[in-house]
Design a protein around this nucleic acid. Structure first.
Lengths: 201, 201
DNA sequence: GTCTATATTGAGATAGAC
DNA sequence: GTCTATCTCAATATAGAC
């Protein structure tokens, strides 16, 4: 699907406003429940403008997914490098990713709404790649920690998923509650529990 | 909203088939993307039958939510009692809830699709009550474990959420992947990690 | 590139016979 | 209770002027 781009020097406002409106409206109401009319009203443009730039509602959706996924990808890659022990690096990485997601909640909400929330007629798009990148990064950090003796020997996958679990559950609490019962600080405490264990020593 | 129930002795097949079809179709395609026509075709009935029993697509959805939520509620309550140490009881409870959910994946998928997947025009329904019941039950088990000295003293909420995280992330992996990378056995190992800690002692 | 006006389809819902 | 036939409306999408 070839997407038209406006000629150089022309205002791109309309196109950008449509993408922004799509992000907000799709995240708010879902893909199927958001009509082209609402999308255009929210963006302050008329319908033919949408079809001009994105060819269809589906095209707008795919373009939005592609652009935002690329943004997340580079963000995750940038956060992997940090000095300190394996434990410090893991906590730092997870915290930063969490904070970044927390500041882009509508975007994350949209991704979750497609990932967990049934296709709803939305065109398929590989939404798991960002999640997988986070998993890979944690795996690298854990493996390094084991080699250095900073993390106990054991099933790497289990360790990675346990860390991921703390991140996911905290993020999801932000997504579906206006007053989340846990936040970034709770998440760090949970990670500390995971490192230290909750059984009496 | 008053829902009609068929007179005693009459066949309830049509009504039940509609509920089953609604569960499957809503979970598969989402609320907004599923049309009344598809619903009726899947149930093998005509449209007026749906409107006769449930008054509207919305009524069918609400009835489905109400019935399934009640089923989950009693299931959770039944699983709370089990002999053994706090650790054994927690692992047992989480495992049983997970297995029950795993056997009712379409249902869980539907709940998640509404909870995380934007309203999609679906009528609002308190979907968090089952989740909250699980949290409450774990909280009780953890508090008891601390009193008995089987769990180290600490922030109860952090402990509860860490346990919940292992459950959630495992369940969600079943929901959005055909080949889940973690399963019930992984979850138990993750819980053991949480109890013992991943840092070298 | 952006508009007005419109084509076309399928949605949710109902009337009224049986 | 279940059907056929139909109403109404809003959805996506486009034609064609400017």
């Amino acid at each position: 699907m070839k997407i038209q781009t406006p000629p150089y020097g022309h205002p791109v406002e309309a196109r950008e406003r449509l993408l922004a409106a799509a992000l907000e409206q799709f995240a708010l109401r879902g893909y199927a429940a958001t009509s082209v009319r609402e999308l255009c009203e929210a963006a302050g443009v008329t319908k033919p403008v949408l079809y001009y730039y994105f060819k269809s509602k589906e095209g707008l959706f795919l373009q939005l997914m592609e652009e935002t996924s690329a943004i997340l990808e580079t963000m995750i890659a940038d956060l992997a490098n940090y000095p300190g022990s394996a434990r410090e690096r893991i906590v730092h990485f997870i915290t930063e990713v969490f904070n970044a997601c927390d500041q882009q909640l509508p975007l994350i909400k949209l991704i979750y709404s497609i990932l967990f929330g049934t296709p709803q007629g939305a065109p398929s798009f590989n939404l798991e790649q960002n999640y997988d990148r986070i998993l890979e990064t944690i795996t690298g950090l854990v493996e390094e920690g084991i080699v250095r003796g900073e993390i106990a020997r054991g099933n790497v996958n289990d360790i990675v998923w346990t860390i991921m679990a703390c991140f996911s559950v905290t993020l999801e609490e932000q997504l579906c509650r206006c007053n989340p019962r846990i936040d970034g600080a709770s998440m760090v405490r949970m990670l500390n529990l995971v490192f230290n264990g909750i059984a009496p020593h």
